[in-house]
């Protein structure tokens, strides 16, 4: 048991490194559309990882991802032709960072479902006010964004992903990470043993949003045209949450795998079965949540456990395995 765990611990980083190297090399040997698809996967991977960095560890389900993403998009919309690309990306991150600091500071008192609803409506509020302001005060009708080619966007997203994963890894390793997970398990107790609960929460929220903002800023250059309804789309709040749960929480790989499988599945459905996409998608979602409560990674761990430790652990595995086959 312990041995297998140790092996697993070594395997994970090695696999990650291999995957990253592979992904960096992808544009040079595949057709350009694969890059576009991988780009979408990376974008969702960033959103999902960032989401799980805060919500996965602290247990506060944030639905404001779309707001931070939109903040990034809008940064590019306004600064796109004024600054060089790397600076814009960082600016997008900072915009989201500041927004998250603000939102975090305001929502300190809220817990559980109230926090989720508040963050959800913040997306809509920003969308509506921005829209009203642009239409009625400055008379703008959407923004054109200078285009950057797909390969560049892809690399920038890849770098952001790696940075994000490193950040998550370092945070989890540090005292800071321990304090964070203590909030997740019992906030009062954490406060009692001297953890600065408030500061920690807000800071983590802001850090995780920083990456979402960066992803938004670079994705804007692939979207060409942005208005507030495009930028602040609630789907970008729901999808990362779903992807993270789909992949499995509590492990850095979970959100990653969730984002990749989820995006790929969706891609197949909307192209192969456009008229039945929603029905199949909904069914897969319901079955996943019923039969894979700990996500794809949970299933993989179960199988791993079974392989290394053939003690009979009945239940979930057999049924779950079936679905994993269909979704992978």
């Amino acid at each position: 048991m312990k041995k297998s765990k140790r092996i697993a611990k070594y395997i994970v980083p090695v696999v990650i490194v291999l995957v990253v190297v592979l992904m960096a090399a992808v544009p040079s040997f595949t057709d350009p559309y694969k890059v576009v698809l991988l780009r979408t996967i990376l974008m969702f991977a960033i959103l999902t990882l960032s989401w799980s960095l805060f919500s996965g560890t602290t247990g506060y389900t944030s639905l404001a991802t779309a707001a931070f993403y939109g903040a990034g998009l809008y940064t590019t919309a306004y600064l796109g032709d004024k600054l060089p690309l790397p600076l814009i990306v960082v600016c997008g991150g900072i915009a989201a960072f500041v927004l998250a600091l603000l939102m975090g500071a305001i929502t300190l008192r809220l817990k559980g479902i109230y926090f989720s609803i508040f963050t959800l409506s913040s997306v809509e509020l920003i969308k509506q006010i921005l829209h009203w302001y642009e239409i009625n005060i400055i008379g703008v009708r959407g923004h054109y964004v200078t285009r950057v080619n797909d390969v560049t966007v892809y690399y920038v997203l890849l770098v952001i992903t790696v940075l994000l994963m490193l950040t998550i890894y370092l945070i989890k390793r540090s005292r800071y990470g321990l304090a964070l997970s203590s909030i997740g398990s019992c906030e009062e107790a954490a406060a009692h043993i001297g953890v600065n609960v408030v500061g920690l929460k807000v800071l983590t929220y802001a850090i995780s949003s920083f990456f979402i903002g960066m992803a938004g800023a670079i994705m804007a250059t692939a979207m060409l045209y942005i208005d507030s309804y495009v930028a602040f789309d609630l789907n970008y709040s729901f999808f990362p949450t779903l992807m993270a749960i789909f992949g499995g929480l509590g492990n850095i790989l979970g959100p990653l795998v969730g984002a990749a499988v989820f995006t790929y599945l969706r891609e197949i459905l909307i192209t192969k079965y456009p008229y039945h996409y929603m029905l199949i998608f909904g069914t897969v979602m319901v079955l996943t949540i019923l039969y894979l409560p700990s996500g794809l990674i949970g299933l993989a761990q179960n199988i791993w456990k079974k392989l290394t430790n053939p003690a009979p652990e009945k239940g979930l595995k057999t049924e779950g395995g079936k679905h994993a086959d269909t979704s992978c």
Binding site: V17, V21, A25, V162, Y169, R173
Partner: peptide, 26 residues
Amino acid sequence: LLLICLIACLVLVLILVGCAGNKAGN
């Protein structure tokens, strides 16, 4: 583990630099 990750980073940066050269051409 940290070491591995750092190496990964290094590899990545190297690749990126390589690609950045290619990119213009690309």
